[in-house]
Amino acid sequence: MRLTRPNPLRIYTYIIALLLYVPVIVMIAYSFNDSKFIGEWRGFTLKWYKVALGDNAFLETLYNSLTVAVSSAIVSIIIALPAALASRKDRLSLGLVEPLIYPPIVIPEIAEAVALMLFLISLGFPLGWLSVFIGHTAFNVAYAYITLAPSIGASRSLEEAARTLGAGPLTVFTKIILPLSMPGIIAALMLTFMLSFTDFIKTLFTTGPGFQTLPLLIWNRARRPGLTEYSSQNALNALASILIALSLSIALAYTAYMVKRLGRGNA
């Protein structure tokens, strides 16, 4: 495609990109603004980051978010991997697995969140880290499965070759299936980590007193701006920017990994 003749689709794409990224860029820019007021630029400063990072609540909720996201990502892949393996073996399992796996992607998150909350309360299940983790893992399994399934299907004849060369099922799994599924597994880990790390709705409904994740902290602060130094607009900008930086670095790490893999001529 040449750049000389802009077509409507291209213009449309630019508008979408603008709508998506301008608020984010403005927010990041203001997180470095040496003024308390939006719309007034007084020069570059890092003091809001100092404020945000000096906040014990930030560190605590960041820790909560990370532990939930890492555990949920790993556990959802441990659950989704056998499902992806089974669904590839025969049509029957495929017919059983997929209808059970996809609904969490289609059902509105709010409905799922309310249902889970009511269910947990009716069981008398304590709301906190574990309930948030369960909530996140419920949808993460679905996303892990759809990310894993294609990369796992590709190795069928290689597994048979390995069997005829004398490898038992366990060796086939560790030496053939797992290495060949690695791009899919890593993609699934990153996707599920991000979904959990940035989740708001599910967390809001499944958490209990005393347990907050980073998105919930930002929400609570943003509801009452200026209540403390930490909930100032500027500190919130800094906090949200940190969140974005974390997300972006994970996306970049994944891209770099894939580029390296493809660069080795090993698709």
Binding site: L158, E160, A161, R163, T164, L180, N266, A267
Partner: peptide
């Protein structure tokens, strides 16, 4: 007997060489 216990060798039509 499963394939790995039969003492066979097989060359597949698509070769099935391990790409990794």
């Amino acid at each position: 007997l499963p394939p790995e216990k039969r003492g066979i060798g097989m060359v597949f039509q698509d070769l099935a060489l391990f790409p990794h």
